[in-house]
């Protein structure tokens, strides 16, 4: 199972699920981060945490603790 964490800069994926353990799941949905969304990793930081992802025209910085819950294909 691959998650957003595994994406390196410029790699693409499609979101297939968000783990229920994620406390901010509702917030992700509000931001349009839902199943079926295409996602590109666009920025990385010095410690690979956080990384920034482009999802539906918007760019979000996510910490590993959150992106580990987002399953991609």
């Amino acid at each position: 199972m691959r998650t957003l964490l595994d994406l390196k800069v410029d790699e693409k994926g499609t979101i297939v699920g968000i783990d229920n353990k994620c406390k901010l799941k509702q917030r992700l949905i509000d931001l349009g981060i839902v199943n079926g969304s295409d996602v590109i990793c666009v920025l990385d930081s010095a410690n690979h945490n956080p990384k920034a992802y482009q999802i539906k025209n918007a760019v979000f910085a996510l910490r590993s603790s959150l992106s580990q819950y987002i399953v991609i294909e």
Binding site: K23, A61, R63, S65
Partner: peptide, 11 residues
């Protein structure tokens, strides 16, 4: 420590 967070990098 509660580490989940989202920040939009606005254009």
């Amino acid at each position: 420590k509660d580490n989940e967070y989202i920040l939009e990098l606005t254009p």
